[in-house]
Amino acid sequence: MPVVMDADRIGRTLTRIAHEIVERNKGVEDLALVGVRTRGVHIARRLARSLREITGEEIPTGALDITLYRDDLMRQAVGPQPLVRRTEIPFSIDNRKILLVDDVLYTGRTTRAALDALIDFGRPKAIQLIVLVDRGHRELPIKADYVGKNLPTATDESVQVRLQESDGTDEVVVQQEGR
């Protein structure tokens, strides 16, 4: 179970991404963070803290649950439904630049669902994608704007992001599936 990112590395990476956000957008005007549940939300909150330390500005932050937009929903003839959790976007996304945050970018299907879900909330000026880990194997034409770490993986491996807020520790590990 190799650890590919530890707590220090995750911390430094998020600080670096925060600086990239400020550089690329020439400040933080009109920006808002939206995290994809569950761990994308934790990462979005951490980025909001970093951005406040860098710029002194408070960036609106929301949480998006994409379950009802998944393309594999109702695909199996029978089977349990995935749990739906609450979406909380307490601000208008119209004419804002939305920083969409997720932990792992893999097939791109979650991001596709998140884009559809977001656009039901309004018409943002732009959407930029932030991921902590890009593990490759895209099945849709989707690309991240900010990547914490590019991690080449095999399809039979799984990438686990663990964060203090939900898992009690900060680390990214690669596991062989079925172990």
Binding site: T67, L68, M74, V84, T87, D116, D120, F121
Partner: peptide, 17 residues
């Protein structure tokens, strides 16, 4: 609880069913 939030949106519709 998650469904209640959908009713507060401008576009009150999700593609689940």
């Amino acid at each position: 609880e998650a469904m209640k939030e959908i009713g507060s949106r401008t576009v009150k519709k999700v593609p689940a069913l």
